[in-house]
């Protein structure tokens, strides 16, 4: 499966109350175009989506917080998954879309293949954990179990390296903050 196909498949499970943090580059663009708006679309902050997601999860214990990150971003901030697992917020879900490359910058390879995600996630004792290749016939069940788990959850999906030709996110980051904080104030 391709990354945007996984992101599009998430749509059926996302409600207005959910909070999504997307990692910079293609993933933020895909989340912006395919899932309900507004969310926290990171544009820079390489390596920080899990940290930002942890802050959001701790500050909004009654909302589900979903981090959608690529492997390059995840590896850069790998310590944050240890921090997240130290606190294990029940509302935090971390989705790693692994195409083994820095795709936004031209498809250069990452060191991702060296990591046994299954063992790593297992060592963090996430109550829901899964590491596998994304497949069209199982994606609905995988996403549903991951997103509906009432527990700190990590899902690692190996995806095909590819992207859609999507327009850049038209909102300036200041507007992203304005739109998102507007949504948060209505939720509480």
């Amino acid at each position: 499966m391709k990354g945007f196909e996984v992101i599009t498949a998430m749509k059926d499970y996302i409600s207005e109350k959910d909070i999504i943090i997307s990692s910079n580059g293609n993933i933020s663009r895909e989340v912006y175009h395919h899932l309900p708006q507004p969310q926290v679309y990171l544009r820079g902050s390489m390596g920080l989506p899990v940290a930002v997601g942890l802050g959001l999860a701790l500050a909004n214990p009654n909302n589900r917080v979903i981090v959608v990150t690529g492997d390059g971003n995840f590896l850069m901030g790998m310590g944050s998954s240890v921090t997240a697992s130290f606190y294990k917020p029940k509302n935090l879900k971390i989705l790693i879309l692994d195409n083994k490359s820095y795709f936004t910058t031209g498809g250069q390879q990452t060191v991702s293949p060296a990591l046994n995600y299954s063992k790593f996630i297992d060592s963090l004792n996430a109550e829901y954990k899964n590491s596998k290749e994304a497949s069209k016939d199982q994606i609905k069940e995988d996403l549903s179990r991951f997103l509906n788990s009432n527990t700190f959850a990590m899902l690692h999906l190996i995806i095909e390296a590819s992207k859609e030709n999507l327009e850049n996110i038209p909102w300036h980051p200041e507007n992203i903050t304005k739109e998102f904080t507007g949504k948060i104030s209505k939720l509480s």
Partner: peptide, 19 residues
């Protein structure tokens, strides 16, 4: 909240401030 790195701490704080 404990952090492993200072930029991670700022990331966590950013999530709080976004809220």
């Amino acid at each position: 909240i404990l952090a492993t790195r200072e930029d991670e701490a700022m990331g966590i704080a950013s999530g709080v401030v976004f809220s």
